[in-house]
Simulated scan of single mutants.
Amino acid sequence: MAIKRRNDLRGVVIAAVVVVLWTGLLVYLLQWPVDFSSPLTYLFILLQTHLYTGLFITAHDAMHGVVAPGRPKLNRAIGTVTALLFAYNWYPRLLPRHHQHHRHVATEHDPDYHAGSFWPWYFSFLKQYITWWQILLMAITFNVLKLFFPLENVVLFWMLPAIMATFQLFYFGTYLPHRGEHSSDNPHKSGTQAKNHAWAFMSCYFFGYHYEHHDKPYLPWWQLYKAKS
């Protein structure tokens, strides 16, 4: 079984596809002539947002060891790269916090949880994960990019999708599943989306099936739909 898991490179291939698509589309869009009257502009913003979210979901899967099972160094390397590409997140800092979330879900010891309404919870969530050095690196990158590409392209296709992806991840992956009270027979204190695989993928790479993720954290995002009854 260990050998079979070690030879399973599907997660690595899928991670590579996400990174290549994000990188390729970003390079293309930074040079694309923006037309605010064209629906393509807004479609590209949404698509790049979705790919940003895919970067973080890939880093998240690495935290569970399922991107490159049986290959911990490769798994960690992929997690580190994809976390960095998502606004310079630092994988070694994210890793213990995410496992703390799984151990103490929806309690005062859960770094992702806040007993409040949407906006206070969102800002509490950001404070847990955003550091000053990330902001500094993002500012430096922004100023370098605008030397080579039109300012509106940098804002629309590099900066705005990153911000929107934080909303996507927070709303579908934290706020919706963990808000409110959960019954005593719900050990994961997590809700779940209604079964709709197309919407579950588009909304947050199946992480709206959040009870299922907490129940089977060994499933990568691209297999999580199988756990939905």
Rank of each mutant, 00 (worst) to 15 (best):
N7V: 10
V12C: 14
V12W: 11
V13A: 15
I14L: 13
A15N: 11
V17M: 12
V18N: 05
V20R: 13
L30Y: 11
Q31L: 08
Q31Y: 09
D35G: 08
P39C: 08
T41L: 14
L43T: 04
I45T: 07
L46V: 10
L46G: 11
L47Q: 02
H50P: 00
L51N: 05
L51K: 02
T53C: 05
T53A: 02
L55Y: 05
F56C: 07
H60D: 10
A62S: 13
M63C: 14
P72I: 08
K73Q: 05
V81I: 15
V81R: 15
L84S: 03
R93P: 09
L95G: 15
L95W: 15
V105H: 10
T107G: 01
D110P: 06
Y113D: 04
F118R: 15
W119F: 12
Y122N: 14
F123S: 12
I130P: 12
W132M: 13
Q134R: 14
I140R: 15
I140Q: 07
F142R: 11
F142P: 10
L145K: 00
L147T: 13
L147P: 12
F148G: 03
F149W: 00
F149G: 03
L151Y: 04
V154R: 00
L156G: 05
F157H: 00
W158V: 04
M159F: 06
I163P: 11
M164Q: 05
F167V: 12
G173S: 05
G173H: 07
T174F: 07
L176C: 01
P177N: 03
H182V: 11
D185S: 13
D185Q: 05
G191P: 00
T192V: 07
Q193G: 14
F201A: 10
Y205A: 03
F206R: 01
F207G: 02
G208Q: 08
Y209C: 04
H210W: 13
D215V: 11
W221L: 06
L224K: 09
Y225G: 06
A227L: 06
A227M: 08
K228I: 05
